[in-house]
Amino acid sequence: VCQVIAMYDYAANNEDELSFSKGQLINVMNKDDPDWWQGEINGVTGLFPSNYVKM
């Protein structure tokens, strides 16, 4: 598990995705897919595009 910072706002398009705002910290749970990582914010988990965040 690592933390990343959102570089942009992201609004989920599907129920399994994670919405976040620019500057939010996201706990990364899974990086099996290079493009879509699984993350957690405040107890909510979902997929998000890895190119929207930085380490």
Rank of each mutant, 00 (worst) to 15 (best):
Q3C: 09
N13D: 11
Q3N: 05
M29E: 13
A11F: 10
E40A: 09
G43V: 02
L47A: 13
E17H: 15
S21L: 11
V1A: 03
S21T: 12
Q38H: 15
E40W: 05
K22C: 09
V28Q: 00
Q24I: 08
I26P: 00
L18M: 10
S21F: 06
G43A: 10
W37K: 00
N30F: 07
V1D: 11
K54M: 05
K54Y: 07
C2L: 04
V28I: 14
D33G: 11
D9A: 14
F20T: 01
S21N: 13
M7C: 12
Q24N: 10
D33E: 13
G46L: 02
S21A: 14
N42Y: 08
I26K: 00
I26V: 08
D33A: 09
E17D: 05
G43L: 04
S50N: 07
V53H: 03
V28G: 00
E17L: 06
L25F: 13
E17V: 05
P34K: 15
L47I: 04
V28E: 00
I41Q: 08
V1N: 03
A6D: 00
M29V: 13
M29C: 12
Y10Q: 02
N27F: 07
N27D: 05
G46D: 01
P49L: 05
Y10R: 09
N30R: 12
S21Q: 06
E15H: 14
P49S: 04
A11V: 09
D32V: 09
Y52R: 12
N14F: 08
L25H: 10
D35F: 08
Y8T: 06
G46S: 02
W36P: 00
E40K: 11
L18K: 02
Y52G: 06
N42P: 03
Y52M: 13
E15A: 12
D32G: 07
T45I: 07
A12K: 13
V44W: 05
N51S: 12
T45L: 12
L47P: 03
M7E: 09
V4F: 13
D16S: 13
A6C: 05
Q3V: 11
F20D: 00
E17T: 05
N14T: 13
Q38R: 12
L47Y: 11
C2K: 05
N30S: 12
W37G: 01
M7G: 08
S19I: 02
L25Q: 07
T45R: 08
V53N: 02
D16V: 08
A6W: 00
D35I: 15
G43K: 15
K54C: 06
K31N: 11
D35T: 11
V4C: 06
G23C: 03
S19C: 09
G43T: 06
M55Q: 07
P49N: 07
L47V: 14
G39W: 00
D33T: 12
Q38P: 02
I5W: 09
W37I: 02
V4Y: 15
V4K: 02
G23S: 09
P34A: 14
T45W: 05
S50A: 10
I26M: 04
D9G: 09
Y8D: 04
A12G: 09
F48P: 02
Y10I: 02
V53R: 02
E40P: 00
A11Q: 13
S21P: 11
Y8S: 14
N13S: 14
S19K: 05
I41G: 03
T45Y: 06
D16K: 14
P34T: 13
C2F: 14
F20Q: 01
D9Y: 03
G46H: 00
F48W: 00
S50K: 09
G46M: 00
N51W: 06
Y52P: 02
N30P: 02
V53A: 09
F48V: 12
N30E: 10
G43S: 12
N27Y: 08
P34I: 09
I41C: 05
K54T: 14
A11E: 15
I26Y: 02
N30L: 12
G39C: 00
D16Y: 15
G43M: 08
D9P: 07
P49Y: 07
N14K: 14
D9R: 06
Y8M: 13
W36Y: 10
Q38W: 03
G46R: 03
E15K: 10
K31L: 15
D33M: 06
N51L: 05
A12M: 06
K31E: 14
N30K: 13
K54L: 04
V53Q: 02
M7D: 14
Y8V: 10
V1L: 04
A11M: 10
E40S: 14
W37C: 02
E15P: 14
P49H: 07
G43D: 10
E17Q: 11
A6K: 00
K54F: 05
G43I: 01
K22W: 03
T45K: 12
N30M: 12
S50C: 05
S21D: 12
N51E: 05
V28T: 04
S50D: 00
N51M: 09
Y8C: 13
I41P: 00
A11P: 09
G39R: 00
G39P: 01
A11S: 13
V1T: 15
N42G: 11
G43C: 07
N13E: 12
G39E: 01
Q24K: 06
N13I: 09
Q24A: 13
Y8A: 13
Y8H: 05
M55A: 15
Q38N: 03
Y52K: 15
D9N: 11
A11G: 12
E15F: 06
V44L: 11
N30D: 08
A11D: 14
Q3F: 15
L25W: 07
L47C: 04
V53L: 02
G23H: 14
D9E: 06
D32L: 07
N42M: 10
F48L: 14
S19T: 11
D33L: 08
C2P: 07
G23D: 12
I41D: 02
G39I: 00
V28S: 00
D16C: 13
W37T: 01
Y52I: 12
N30T: 11
L18H: 02
